[in-house]
């Protein structure tokens, strides 16, 4: 009897998750009347605005990942090594982006960094891009920090640091050659999550008026029928590809056993 309920719960769950997805895929293929086709996908992929916004978001994601790694890895490492008592406080700070809505943050940014402020970042496209990247890094902070911190937990940070120091290594060498390679899988997990967040983010990009993929998705959704469905499927594919890459890299990493 219990088994029947288990199967029923699983089936309901699968239907809940997959039915909208299947419906979206099916709808995205129905652009041509009376037959299935990839017309919607072709139209979307040929649209110069798609190429422009998608490549903009990809570049922003890469910069956000680089900035996030440079910010989070040394911070998480230092907290573990020298300030373990501050860990709860730092964890709390990294969780704040989950409870403070992006719209509140971006309004704060606009007030703080507008053209009449002491740091007028919104006064130029580069400055606004920089601001948007900081915003993205903040949004992905809970995921990036947790991933890196979990990675650091699997290695003996203090002893490895001391071993490297006794061999003549300074802090940068220790971070680059000892710590980072040993938490690379965790960093990549955080990086792919960051990538997925940046690709789909709407609020910050729209309010800072940047040509990102999120606002483009919204614009298409408001004006077209089949293309938004195709875009949604493409966005899903990108996210799933990221998750698949995390799995793949974890599996093929040579020294993961040692870190366990």
């Amino acid at each position: 009897m219990n088994r029947i309920w288990s199967w029923l719960a699983l089936s309901l769950g699968l239907v809940y998750f997959f039915l909208p997805l299947i419906a979206t895929v099916e709808f995205s293929l129905k652009m041509r009347r009376g037959e299935y086709s990839f017309d919607a996908y072709r139209k979307v992929l040929e649209d110069p605005r798609f190429q422009e916004t998608f490549s903009y978001s990809v570049v922003m994601a890469l910069f956000t990942i680089a900035f996030g790694v440079l910010l989070v890895v040394p911070t998480a490492y230092w907290v573990r090594l020298k300030l373990p008592r501050l860990r709860p406080a730092v964890e709390f700070v990294t969780l704040l982006p989950l409870v403070i809505p992006a719209i509140v943050v971006v309004f704060g940014y606009i007030r703080l960094y507008n053209t009449s402020s002491w740091l007028p970042l919104t006064g130029s496209a580069t400055g606004t891009n920089l601001l948007l990247m900081f915003g993205y890094a903040m949004l992905s902070l809970p995921y990036m920090y947790r991933a890196v911190d979990t990675g650091l937990r699997t290695i003996d940070v203090a002893t490895l640091t001391e071993a490297a120091q006794s061999l003549g290594a300074g802090w940068i060498t220790i971070l680059a050659r000892v710590i980072l390679p040993n938490v690379l899988i965790a960093v990549l997990s955080g990086a792919f999550l960051t990538f997925a967040i940046v690709i789909g983010e709407f609020t910050m990009a729209a309010l800072l008026n940047r040509p990102a993929f999120g606002p483009y998705l919204q614009l298409m959704g408001a004006n077209r029928a089949y293309e938004p469905a195709a875009l949604a499927v493409i966005a899903f594919a990108v996210t799933w590809a990221c998750m698949g890459l995390i799995q793949l890299i974890t599996r093929f990493s040579k020294h993961t056993k040692a870190a366990r």
Binding site: T159, L160, E162, S166, G168, V178, H255
Partner: peptide, 17 residues
């Protein structure tokens, strides 16, 4: 890292990567 002293630890401390 400036002392030129070698150290061997109880927990080996080999770099796993």
């Amino acid at each position: 890292n400036q002392r030129n002293i070698g150290m061997v630890f109880q927990a080996y401390a080999l770099f796993p990567n």
